[in-house]
């Protein structure tokens, strides 16, 4: 099977989680036997993360004059909220100086950013990854990526193994195993499904842990058109016997609240949902 079977756009879409389920499955199936294919995918995952970080490092401060001008305009337009009165009539003086000077901490300023952080796993995760030196990734499909401790692009030991071989086997476990069950994979490593829940869009999702050697992964996969897609994963070194990277939990919590994860399903409901 040739690496050239998939063009760059397809692999990029796979890395970005934008590929349709059917083609994703084809790519996922081909990865195991084709390291070059895996390398091409991880190059796209890597370039995404690099670009994101580079842009994030380079957000220049908004000039005070610009910020003040916009805030003044907002204040002028906002007026007391909508009675059915044309709002041109009385525009109270903008409290520009209350916000303009230092600018940064104006009330309400964080709202969108906070919402965005909640919505977007990667943003929520980035600072934690930096601080805690764990490998992490948010990706669609099984295009996992490990951004390691020392810097971008370093790969945590063992993470490639996870990316290369385990996808299909994990998918099988996700489709069948009850929460709490600990399954040894044929190719090595273990999977334990932690919980099953629905996200805000009523997709069935499962939180699971994967461990192999001294590397652990905590991840979330959601079922889309009968295929399981990993939507969140954090990998890191683990201590003996405990295969969850402790530092990934915070990121996971942030991610789960971001996708509107519901309460875990009871065993009966879980079984029914899985067989649906």
């Amino acid at each position: 099977m040739s690496t050239n079977r998939f063009d760059d756009e397809t692999l990029m879409a796979y890395a970005d989680g934008e590929l349709d389920a059917e083609t994703s499955a084809e790519v996922a199936a081909a990865i195991g036997g084709d390291p070059m294919l895996a390398a091409r995918i991880s190059a796209f995952t890597r370039s995404r993360i690099l670009a994101k970080r580079a842009f994030e490092e380079a957000v220049p401060p908004v000039p005070d004059a610009l910020r003040a001008a916009i805030e003044a305009r907002i204040a002028a337009m906002a007026a007391p909220v909508p009675e059915p009165v044309p709002d041109l009539v009385t525009a109270p003086e903008p409290p520009a100086e209350a916000r303009g000077g230092t600018g940064v901490g104006a009330p309400g300023v964080v709202s969108l950013e906070a919402a965005r952080q909640r919505r977007r796993g990667l943003s929520a995760f980035a600072p934690i990854a930096m601080a805690a030196s764990i490998a992490a990734v948010v990706a669609g499909g099984l295009g996992w990526y490990a951004g390691g401790s020392g810097g971008i692009g370093a790969t945590a030991p063992g993470a490639d193994m996870i990316a290369l071989g385990a996808g299909p086997a994990i998918t099988e476990v996700l489709g069948a195993a009850a929460s709490g069950a600990d399954t040894a994979l044929p190719g090595g490593g273990r999977v334990r499904v932690v919980a099953t829940f629905e996200d805000a869009e009523q997709r069935l999702c499962r939180e699971f842990e994967y461990g192999r050697g001294d590397t652990g992964v905590i991840a979330v996969a959601c079922r889309q058109q009968a295929a399981w897609q990993v939507v969140f994963a954090a990998a890191g070194p683990t201590t003996e016997g405990d295969f969850v990277p402790a530092s990934g939990m915070e990121a996971l919590d942030a991610y789960l609240s971001g996708i509107g994860a519901g309460t875990p399903l009871e065993p009966g409901a879980e079984k029914a949902a899985l067989s649906r």
């Binding site: 957000v59 220049p60 401060p61 908004v62 610009l66 910020r67 916009i70 805030e71 907002i74 204040a75 337009m77 906002a78 104006a106 009330p107 309400g108 300023v109 964080v110 709202s111 969108l112 950013e113």
Partner: peptide, 12 residues
């Protein structure tokens, strides 16, 4: 308004 102000750095 608040969303707009929060978005300023990214808009710029």
């Amino acid at each position: 308004g608040p969303d707009l102000v929060a978005l300023l750095p990214r808009l710029r």
